[in-house]
């Protein structure tokens, strides 16, 4: 466990010290948000209706595109080689790196996104449910993005491919995330959706380390 914490701490330090961490992800998030009113027109009522969905999609894309950082550098400089030779199972290494990505990027984004909701005229009553749903959903987002990052780690131009691979996996998170963050919904529906989001996060927690580690191993060979 201590070894895993050491790895998480190192990845967090690196993402703080190197450029392109949360700042860039937030910038990307804002860029997507600004395109939306430009695309559909600055009609406040229309924006309010689509606000939760718009914020969710911006969140999905930001998390996805920041994910290549999870394994890329460690793959290229040989750190991953050494990590397979450590005392902990390689699956735990993959998990730790996904957790570090969640802590450094997805979670801050999930907290910031509802607060930036005023840009798309999000109803104030929707902020809290949206924040809850996003924080819960972002766990699965990081874990699934890690799979995509691992599968494309050795490819020079993995960016588009990652999107094709991972976005379909994001569909359930988007569906239940949205249904959890509808402001007018019955309280039962919100709770049920949040629970399903939690379940998706748990399933990802099991699948992601196995899949990422297997993919990384085959690249290391």
């Amino acid at each position: 466990m201590k070894l895993i914490l050491a790895l998480i701490k190192r990845d967090l330090t690196l993402s703080l010290r190197q450029g392109g961490g949360i700042g860039t992800a937030l910038g990307f998030f804002l860029s997507v948000v600004v395109l939306l009113p430009i695309g559909i027109g600055p009609d406040q009522a229309l924006l309010a209706r689509i606000a939760p969905g718009a914020l969710w999609i911006a969140l999905l894309l930001s998390v996805l595109l920041s994910a290549d950082r999870i394994f890329q550098q460690d793959y290229e400089d040989g750190s991953l080689d050494i990590m397979t030779m450590g005392p902990v199972p390689f699956e735990m290494v993959a998990l730790a790196k996904a957790v570090a990505h969640w802590l450094s990027t997805s979670l801050p984004l999930a907290i910031a996104a509802p607060l930036l909701g005023f840009l798309v005229n999000l109803e104030p009553s929707a902020i809290l449910p949206l924040a809850l749903a996003m924080m819960l959903g972002s766990i699965a987002l990081s874990l699934l993005a890690a799979i995509g990052a691992a599968v494309t780690v050795g490819l020079r131009r993995g960016g588009l491919l990652v999107s094709i691979l991972v976005l379909p996996l994001y569909v359930p998170v988007l569906i239940f995330g949205l249904s959890a963050s509808q402001p007018g919904a019955a309280p039962g529906l919100t709770t049920a959706s949040l629970l399903i989001l939690g379940a998706i996060a748990l399933v990802s927690l099991v699948v992601s380390p196995l899949a990422s580690a297997a993919a990384l191993r085959s690249y290391l060979k």
Binding site: R10, L14, R17, Q18, Q73, E76, D77, G78, S79, I82
Partner: peptide, 12 residues
């Protein structure tokens, strides 16, 4: 195992 590449992080 010491390979050709150096697993050295320049930000640390």
């Amino acid at each position: 195992y010491v390979a050709h590449q150096e697993p050295v992080k320049s930000a640390l």
